[in-house]
């Protein structure tokens, strides 16, 4: 078990640490643009399809996600967006 944990930890930390020591990409405009776009390219993939599988039935999670989108659209702070979505999802989930 110790070997497994150490192996997993080393592999994962190496993946995280390498870019902090070896800059993988240059400072060209294209590289900058790639890294500016990266958060959106990653977040889209983190939200879909996961959000449709987050709760059973999916409707509760989708309602929570819609609440989050509405709160964020109105410029509410992140913590309010998260707590609002949790409350809406819990309420919808409890009503099933």
């Amino acid at each position: 078990m110790a070997a497994l944990i150490i192996g997993m930890a080393l592999v994962t930390y190496a993946l995280r640490a390498i870019p902090f020591w070896l800059p993988l990409a240059g400072r060209s405009p294209r590289a900058r643009r790639f890294f500016d776009l990266l958060p959106f390219a990653v977040l889209g993939a983190l939200i879909v399809p996961g959000v449709f599988q987050a709760t059973e039935p999916p409707a509760a999670g989708v309602a929570g996600a819609a609440a989050a989108a509405g709160l964020a659209w109105r410029g509410r702070p992140l913590i309010v967006v998260v707590l609002g979505a949790v409350a809406v999802t819990a309420a919808v989930s409890a009503s099933f």
């Binding site: 939200i47 987050a54 929570g64 996600a65 989050a68 992140l78 949790v86 999802t89 989930s93 409890a94």
Partner: peptide, 24 residues
């Protein structure tokens, strides 16, 4: 169970809360 379902959506809400202002 309902609270667990709610908290299960928290990370997605976080991602949505980050992306929506930029998308807007």
């Amino acid at each position: 169970a309902s609270l667990k379902a709610g908290m299960g959506v928290a990370l997605y809400a976080l991602f949505i809360g980050l992306v929506v202002p930029a998308v807007r």
